[in-house]
Design a protein around this nucleic acid. Structure first.
Lengths: 198, 198
DNA sequence: CGGATGACAGATTTCAATATCTGTCATCCG
DNA sequence: CGGATGACAGATATTGAAATCTGTCATCCG
């Protein structure tokens, strides 16, 4: 067992945990394996994360935050509000669909993680709805959207498109008509918030 | 074992199966118990249903058809299209919410059944979307709705409201803000199909 | 003779013994 | 002395032998 060449940081532990999850799946990934991958005893891992659940929660947050960051770029862009909203929803659907389709095993692993880490997911969802709120706010300011209650509408938009981002619906994302169904829902909700021509 | 007082019909078998499912749950319900409840041998049950899966599928269909029938009354009513659409969506959400909330164990049982009986559920969904299509059709005819592709929009409406009828979202139906969230989504999609004032 | 029966084989589930894992902490090491 | 270690107790998961269930069919009964 070679001594660790670098100091043991939460960051290194998270990277190793991701790797163990990728290799062994959610059910068989355990703390001892993570420690072994790092060349330390499992007691050392517990110095940085109080429980296995906390460790898994941190990895889950990391995974979700990658999508949040991706979408933040869309929010920060300079498109017109309607285009930006469509872009944001497409980017969300695309990101999820690719995660699910490109590596189904890994996606299944993270589906288990998100299911057990409800709080982390709730925070992630709140962040996404926050991004939506920003886009809607811009649209109202520029006269493209007519919205009474911004936070409520942002949440409604998110829930109305759940079919295309909630992992429980992942099996349906690979259907041939998924893209068409997505566009139909986007068209529906987009019209739902559009300001009527003055 | 008293001889059956009435002839053994699919109908009687289904009623007995429902009862066994209610008593024992989806995991422990078995064909022998159904037969015992009817006072016959399990071989006799297999004369009417080829497999256990077929029997469970038939019970599942029955359960789903009760909701379909309920909603058909709304479709057959004489409300104005927008009101009828809201009424139909409310009735669907209410029916599901009550099934889930009033008897959680039974709901869990049928959740297992619907999960394993994908085809039966798909047919049920197609029926519901058919009902939606009728309402939308009326709305277009009466000038309340502006819709390009009727079947596609009907499906989009159904998917946009999935949060409030898909059993995978049942845990969220008992949240205090569920009704408000529902109304927000309904408002959103209703505006999305409304004809613009001429 | 048409329909019900129950013994049966193979598939599935249950259960308890066994093995592994989580989380703690007294001890060790640089 | 701060951080790593690994032995340990209780919790959780695995395993395989035993029990139950599904689906068939030769036989029986009215």
């Amino acid at each position: 067992m070679p001594p660790p060449s670098e100091p043991l940081t939460p960051e290194r532990i998270l990277a190793a945990t991701e790797e163990v999850l990728r290799r062994h799946g959610a059910a068989k990934a355990n703390v001892v394996d993570v420690a072994r991958a790092l060349g330390v005893s499992h007691g050392s891992v517990y110095r940085h994360f109080a429980t296995k659940a906390e460790l898994r929660g941190a990895v889950t947050k990391r995974w979700l935050d990658r999508t949040t960051a991706l979408l933040a770029d869309v929010v920060a862009g300079s498109e017109a509000p309607t285009a930006k909203l469509r872009h944001w929803l497409s980017a969300l659907f695309d990101a999820k669909r690719h995660k699910a389709g490109d590596d189904p095993e890994l996606f299944a692993t993270y589906t288990v993680l998100t299911t057990e880490q409800g709080g982390v997911v709730d925070a992630h969802i709140d962040e996404l709805i926050g991004q939506l709120t920003v886009i809607l706010q811009e649209g109202v300011a520029q006269g493209e959207f007519a919205i009474e209650d911004l936070p409520v509408t942002a949440r409604a938009l998110f829930e109305a498109t759940a079919h295309f981002h909630d992992p429980v619906h992942a099996p349906e994302w690979s259907r041939p008509d998924a893209q068409g169904a997505f566009e139909a829902v986007v068209a529906l909700v987009t019209r739902g918030i559009a300001a009527r021509p003055a």
